[in-house]
Amino acid sequence: MGLMLWAQGDPVAIGGSATLAVIAVTVMLGFVDAQRLSERVLLGNLGIATGQQALLLGFAAACGEFVLRVGAAFA
């Protein structure tokens, strides 16, 4: 919902192209999340602490999500 508000301003009156953009972004975010999950397991088994993981993955995820949200806003 937050993404819809951010992207369009009115989630009720959201247009067709924006809906497609939101769906695409949601799918991509899910993909990013799945990637993060598999990487977390590997990093965990490597004995890398959660804080370090957050630094490694959080930065990458934040960059990725910023790009996706900006993309959705201009879709």
């Binding site: 799945a34 990637q35 598999s38 397991v41 590997l42 088994n45």
Partner: peptide, 14 residues
Amino acid sequence: VFYVPDHGALSVAL
């Protein structure tokens, strides 16, 4: 301890 979840232990990215 080595943990293998149901979706596998290896990253999909490497």
